[in-house]
Design a protein around this nucleic acid. Structure first.
Lengths: 192, 192
DNA sequence: CAGCGATTCTAGCATTGCTAGACAACCGAG
DNA sequence: CTCGGTTGTCTAGCAATGCTAGAATCGCTG
């Protein structure tokens, strides 16, 4: 049954190709430009092929979101691993998070803004999303403060970062305050 | 020239009708359901009429956003006016803000999520948007803390509220923490 | 190498935002 | 009161969108 296995490998490879193409196109020209036709053209297949891998455009966004969530998690862990001291660790986390959002706006949107048909904060939430939240909580639990549940604190800190990330990207905040916002947020929210 | 005036009044009335219909439809069925055809049908005119008032769908969203921003500003002012004590005033502001976002999700999206073709944090930013920010700053300046510019503090507090509002609405945060999040945010960010 | 099953494509549907050009209504002059 | 012209509105249509049915083609198996 080697033939079947080969076909499955090829199929998986093509699926990765679709996700990669969608992501690249979205980062280059925004999600609006990610149409089924353009996507099909990029992978050099016809549109119906997309629907043999994904239920629709929404699921493709979801696939990009999962890939991105895994990257966000490791970006956060990588940025905090080598840092000594809780305060600097939290600041590094905040900068890594905002940096990821700025460098991968389309992927960030796929994870947090667009509808990728994924469940959040529930049992059936995909591993990658749970793990991204876990990566935040690992570094934030130690500064949550007495009597504050780490999960609650992480939600608030995360929401603040998310607000800054999205409002910054849509040019609703003053660029010159960027660094000061992070400092203020970390100094006030984290209990040291 | 009474005829001209009458026509202008009628025109203005129809414009309000369009904005109201767009808003109502968006709140009922989401912005995706706000198509030019459905909107035209609701106001009992044909689609091209919409384009004699607005450059396109984007501008209609923008009009809803401006109307909403004015309401948000007065909602915040109304909620804080009668409250004594800085801490309770800030808490009231936070609740009023989140309440507005929850009660008018489509309008909130028009203001802060969708592209209504409006400028933000600039000179040519519409009055309504500047005033909404001002309404926040009026109540937040007193708790910014020493050496922290009110504008900076307001941006951070606002971003945090925005993050909570959007993540809550897309079911990415735990509902049971809703009240605790506000308490934590106010207690930590505000300097009392 | 022939036939059959899986795969991929062509072609098309309904819906979207937006626009051109035909048509009608209405105001003001004679 | 009628006619001309401006102003306003509608019908019809464009290209692009997500998605799908059915034809065509490819490649494995006997």
């Amino acid at each position: 049954m080697s033939v079947k296995e080969r076909k499955e490998r090829e199929r998986a490879a093509r699926e990765r190709l679709i996700v990669a193409a969608a992501r690249e196109l979205a980062e280059q020209q925004g999600w609006d430009a990610v149409t089924t036709r353009r996507l099909a053209e990029r992978i050099e297949y016809s549109q119906p092929v997309l629907y043999s891998h994904f239920r629709g455009k929404r699921e493709i966004i979801g696939a990009v979101a999962l890939e991105g969530a895994a990257e966000l998690a490791s970006a956060v862990r990588a940025a905090t691993a080598a840092v000594n001291g809780p305060r600097e660790r939290v600041a590094a986390l905040a900068r890594a998070y905002l940096d990821f959002a700025e460098r991968n706006p389309a992927v960030y949107d796929a994870i947090f803004q667009l509808d990728g048909g994924l469940a959040y904060a529930q049992e059936d939430t995909p591993e990658q999303l749970k793990d991204a939240f876990a990566a935040l909580m690992e570094n934030l639990a130690e500064v949550a403060g007495d009597g504050i549940e780490p999960g609650l604190f992480t939600e608030v800190f995360w929401a603040s970062l998310h607000g800054i990330a999205t409002l910054t990207r849509t040019k609703r905040l003053l660029p010159e305050y960027a660094e000061a916002r992070v400092e203020l947020l970390v100094d006030r929210l984290a209990m040291l």
